[in-house]
Design a protein around this nucleic acid. Structure first.
Lengths: 240, 240
DNA sequence: AGTAATAATGACCGACTGGTCAGTACTATA
DNA sequence: TATAGTACTGACCAGTCGGTCATTATTACT
């Protein structure tokens, strides 16, 4: 069997642009090779879509030939799945650690999760996976199921914990948990997607202030009605 | 030149009726045919994606052959653009009329715009266009630009008006307009997208209560800090 | 050096599909 | 019936791309 095991983790910064410069690498580590292919595939999938990406191009970007690619992946779909597996595991583990260590207010936890997502996923090439899955999940039910179980459910669990803490402590008013999760995630996904879809739904401001405003509206929206303390610091009034 | 001009819209248009008094339609109306192709294409694009859709299938679904399709559209991309043009014009006009007629509170206007979007776009096959454009805009810059100018900008203008009214009347606190628009739209787009992407980012509840909760959080978030009147009616506490 | 094992290659194949076009079928007029 | 006009067809072409495999290059070992 060729590539039964998932290839080693792909870190966001591991973008091996065609290594034209320098001497030819004599002997490459086998695992590194798989990740290089995955990274190259991620970049091209993000740009061209799945069907629009030629495996020849993926191989070329990874500095190899198509035949070599097929030494590591059984099919184009397997490559797709590897990209997801490879990319999201580490990022989610980071977030889970963040949750476990946190002891401040729920609002602060939410803020940390949102900005942590931005740093470790949204800002990185991994963000393209969202667009990919949205665009292609219908054509690859197995990949979709994998993503659903191993990425979405895991991510939702994080947010659920944060919301539950806030509600339990009285910091947040009582809202439907799953609905609130949906509404927290949607702007994040759109931000990720917008990075790979022309300027279509792109926020008109910087991603950071977009996220800041999302948190602002969100935390105001979640705040208990009898809590009149402002969430946002005074002085950030855009109408001033 | 075959069909340099965009094909006629779904709306009834002037027909080049011959002076003959024949009441019964002789053959199939040419314009109807174009819309049939567009509708078939929309359905298949939504399901399979753009690259994944075969023009033979589009033609078959419209009850014609591929050759006939090429009598109405110059290329697959032209068909794509026609789908967008054809579908969104009427829906946006409806929303613009709604805005012009409205005279109640800004919160109510926002609610009407959101639910109007759901009824006329989100709920209909037109919702697939969002997913399509997200997935394919990179590959078709011309289509993307058209969509940007004729759909996105038009839609944003609607929301901008509503927000400006609310801020001017003191109903909403002072927020960055463009950012707020982004954050109003994002959950709508995700809802549309989710309908055509497995159950990935699909709301866990019904679309209606998802939208209701979006408005709830949103209007709470927009409310002036010194306004303590609850936005949501009492009694809908999900923790009760 | 000789030899075996493995990594890597890229020419090739077959299936697929966007796009074409010579021809058919049908209608309306003369 | 003859003629003209047009909606329509489907076989076909040409280019593309996922996937294969015989061959070559490189390393490891003796």
């Amino acid at each position: 069997m060729k590539s039964a095991d998932p290839p080693s983790a792909l870190l966001p910064e591991a973008l091996p642009v065609p290594a034209s410069a320098g001497a030819a690498p004599r002997r490459r580590r086998k695992e590194a090779r798989a990740s290089e292919f995955a990274a190259a595939a991620l970049a091209l999938f993000a740009e061209k879509g799945f069907s629009g990406t030629r495996l020849d191009d993926v191989a070329a970007r990874a500095g190899a030939s198509k035949g070599t690619l097929y030494l590591y992946f059984d099919s184009k779909e397997a490559l797709f799945q590897a990209v997801i597996e490879d990319g999201m595991g580490a990022a989610l583990a980071t977030a889970e650690a963040r949750l476990a260590e946190h002891h401040g207010s729920a609002a602060d936890l939410l803020r940390q999760l949102v900005f942590g997502w931005w740093e470790n996923i949204g800002q990185t090439p991994l963000a393209a996976i969202s667009k990919l899955v949205i665009a292609e999940s219908r054509n690859f039910p197995e990949v979709a199921r994998f993503y659903q179980q191993n990425v979405i459910e895991r991510g939702r669990r994080l947010l659920r914990s944060a919301l539950q803490r806030g509600i339990a402590s009285g910091e947040f008013r009582c809202v439907d948990l799953e609905g609130a999760i949906d509404l927290i995630v949607a702007p994040l996904l759109m931000l990720a997607v917008s990075r790979f879809s022309f300027s279509l739904c792109a926020p008109q401001t910087s991603p950071e202030s977009y996220l800041e405003m999302h948190l602002d509206l969100l935390l105001n929206g979640l705040r208990r009605a009898d809590d009149v303390s402002p969430v946002a610091a005074p002085g950030d009034d855009p109408c001033r």
